[in-house]
């Protein structure tokens, strides 16, 4: 491993100051992805700033929003009574990710910041525009079974691997970022980016900013939500396709639908058209199927991932079926 300097800090302010002082430094929290990237030679920060002792682990209801600190661990959030009661969808999405051991150290902020799991990104001997701009995309005509079908570019077809982020997008979360000029708040759906011509950029976090918390508005979805993750084994596998579904039902009428998909794009993929279609409709499998169909407009396969063109709508239908039944 290439030598690096290790620093530890206890406040967000000092963490930010350290980050701004040195361009080639990185925050480390759980480190469940960053250490892998360093071992594989994908990244080699000169300084690691350990932020585990910065007090950003809160999980609390403030007014009509639930605030979750960037350093709350995935397991702490998933197991928290408030989350289980008010935002079960988020709890299930977290539990569908990684393994118990990883969830115990992985944090909310780290989960957002994790890089794609595309094999070409991790192998420095193979081309990857995300790792090395201009080197080409290995997946485009190679192994792309796990890859994106929405919002792709000819530079990159990688997917964002998070489950948590899919639920957060569906739940209209916001993310609070701290920079030199103080805090700014953006919609969670705008945090991650599409690859476009700059696949090396996963998100809109500025180099001198840090994630401090996410805020999730209370909703009426708890009774009818479901996180359905389709994967190659029952646990500890990234999604082929996942769907976060939340329905607000009155009798069998859909007052509002919240839908996002994972494993299909460079960012968590909100299904806005399907949501709009379902609003005011009866919660029937026919309507779910129509919503799923609408969701697939502009989807594109790259060979090995063509099956997702069928799996994705099927998963939307089944997630909606299960969310409806949940109660």
């Amino acid at each position: 491993m290439i030598n690096f300097q290790y620093l530890r800090t206890t406040s967000a302010k000092s963490a930010l100051a350290l980050l701004q002082k040195d361009k080639n430094s990185k925050f480390i929290a759980g480190g469940t992805n960053l250490i892998d990237l360093m071992k594989r030679g994908v990244t080699a920060p000169e300084k690691l700033i350990d932020i585990n002792h910065v007090p950003l682990k809160q999980i609390e209801l403030i007014g009509t929003k639930i605030h979750i600190g960037a350093l709350a661990t995935n397991s702490a959030v998933a197991d928290h009574a408030l989350i289980k009661e008010k935002l079960p969808l988020l709890s299930w999405a977290l539990q569908a990710g990684a393994s118990a051991q990883l969830r115990n150290v992985a944090t909310v902020g780290g989960n957002m910041m994790q890089r794609t799991r595309c094999g070409y990104f991790y192998d420095t001997e193979m081309p990857c525009n995300k790792r090395e701009a201009g080197s080409g995309c290995g997946a485009l005509e190679g192994f792309n079974r796990m890859h994106a079908i929405f919002g792709t570019s000819d530079k990159c077809i990688a997917v964002h691997p998070s489950d948590m982020c899919v639920a957060l997008v569906a739940l209209d979360a916001e993310v609070v970022l701290l920079g030199p000029k103080g805090e700014r708040k953006i919609l969670f759906k705008d945090f991650h980016r599409l690859a476009g011509d700059t696949p090396q950029l996963d998100n809109n976090l500025k180099p001198d900013e840090m994630i401090v918390r996410v805020e999730i508005p209370l909703n009426n979805l708890a009774k009818h939500s479901y996180y359905l993750k389709v994967r190659d084994r029952a646990s500890y596998a990234f999604a082929l396709v996942s769907v976060a579904a939340g329905l607000e039902l009155e009798d069998n009428k859909i007052l509002s639908a919240h839908l996002a998909m994972g494993g299909v794009a460079h960012k968590p993929w909100r299904l806005t058209k399907a949501e709009e279609f379902l609003k005011g409709k009866e919660a029937t499998e026919e309507n779910f199927a129509q919503a799923a169909k609408l969701s697939m407009e502009n989807a594109k396969g790259f060979g090995e991932n063509n099956f997702k063109l069928k799996l994705a709508p099927n998963t939307i239908i089944e997630a909606l079926n299960l969310a409806k039944r949940k109660a």
Binding site: R117, G119, Y120, M126, G138, G142, F143, Y236, A237
Partner: peptide
Amino acid sequence: DHRYGRYINNNFADYH
């Protein structure tokens, strides 16, 4: 990846 002769999923997260 037969174009390179290299394994794509050579770790326990991806080799299931």
